[in-house]
Design a protein around this nucleic acid. Sequence first.
DNA 1: GGTTAACTTAACAATTTGGTAATCCCGGAT
DNA 2: ATCCGGGATTACCAAATTGTTAAGTTAACC
Lengths: 225, 225
Amino acid sequence: MEPKAKILFADDEPDILDIIGFNLEKEGYEVITANNGQQAFDLSKIHRPDLIILDIMMPYKTGIEVCNLLRQLPDFRDTPIVILTALNDETSHIKGLDSGADDYISKPISTKILISRINALLRRTQKDNEQKIIRIGDMVIDQNRFIVSLKDKEVSLAKKEFELLSLLAGKPGRVFLRNEILSMVWGTEVIVGDRTIDVHIRKIRQKLGIDCIKTIKGVGYKFEW
Amino acid sequence: MEPKAKILFADDEPDILDIIGFNLEKEGYEVITANNGQQAFDLSKIHRPDLIILDIMMPYKTGIEVCNLLRQLPDFRDTPIVILTALNDETSHIKGLDSGADDYISKPISTKILISRINALLRRTQKDNEQKIIRIGDMVIDQNRFIVSLKDKEVSLAKKEFELLSLLAGKPGRVFLRNEILSMVWGTEVIVGDRTIDVHIRKIRQKLGIDCIKTIKGVGYKFEW
DNA sequence: GGTTAACTTAACAATTTGGTAATCCCGGAT
DNA sequence: ATCCGGGATTACCAAATTGTTAAGTTAACC
């Protein structure tokens, strides 16, 4: 079975790591474990989990520190982060949430509740990316079937073209800076030349045959019907 | 000050309604209160709050029932819902979250923590809706779309012109010294001649067709509708 | 493996934008 | 009236940015 989502779980207590990790896997999640803060940070960058669970008291870096660091990176600005801890005082709780975490859960915690909360978080965050069908004017972009159609006439786009169009058409009118486009379509790892975007834009314009992508010189591109 | 967001808060205990409502307002939220489940549901439909807090044990309809009902409606499929309750058993907790709520908080709860959790939820859901729009008289400067419009007629400005106008119109009436303009629009690195500003101002005036940028001789420029 | 499509890059053309300088204007001061 | 210190205007050129095309590189699929 396809895993529902990839979860990184960081705790320095092996017992907890085992028990909760096991239960998460039983729930259908793919689990990556880390024993300390530094490792949690490094493994996150490598594996790009869909959700991150951080214990606070860990060697090398606390969960809060890791959370702050991750939130600096564009790739992790929206990743749901759960702080899991034995500390239950008000100050820690607030500090945890203010560091950009989405949930703060005090141990001991029933595994069922933990999983339920994780489901709730993923339900919300995956819903956002789940806008599977975009409709604007005569255009329909179906992200499930990978099809773009104009007045019921199907247009076939390549993968990158499709992703680029989906990004722009996903928020019509809004201008996307070139580096936003790069990081969203190509990711931050890959480095591609500047002309690459133009060329893809050109192909899209050509294939669509209509002028719905506007250039804002010196800034970026935007979709406009 | 414009309220940060509209929150509907439903609880049948007047004391709690008062205390938490007061604190939410102090935090800058607009608060709508309901005394029972039915009212919570009806008022939600009328006011379209950005976030809904529901007590479970309420007359007419429990918080869970309201949550389920709201989630049926397309308008409330994405609205963050917090279940607030005195029940702290595992089953209720899970049932609450499974009904589509985003958070389940057990009373008693520190007001600060409650607000911190609400902030965290709104932070996530409102992130995309931040609009950088300047409106003055008939003019609208939309920094997301990179558009300036006058009486619904769109005016197209180049990047520097747009930045310059945004700067001036951002604080109408305030005089910007030539130095200030230089450092804010051009940065401190770049060195450009003094006439450059004039020329850009001229282009803006020309394109807008109206005289909303005043010259203060020997000082600088200011925007005035 | 060979073929095809997709992706990226490079090179050049086309366009737009930004900056400068020369000149013109408009008060206020001489 | 004339001069003078800004600023306004204009035209022009350089720089920056994007469009276009073609050719090289990968990756995917028989």
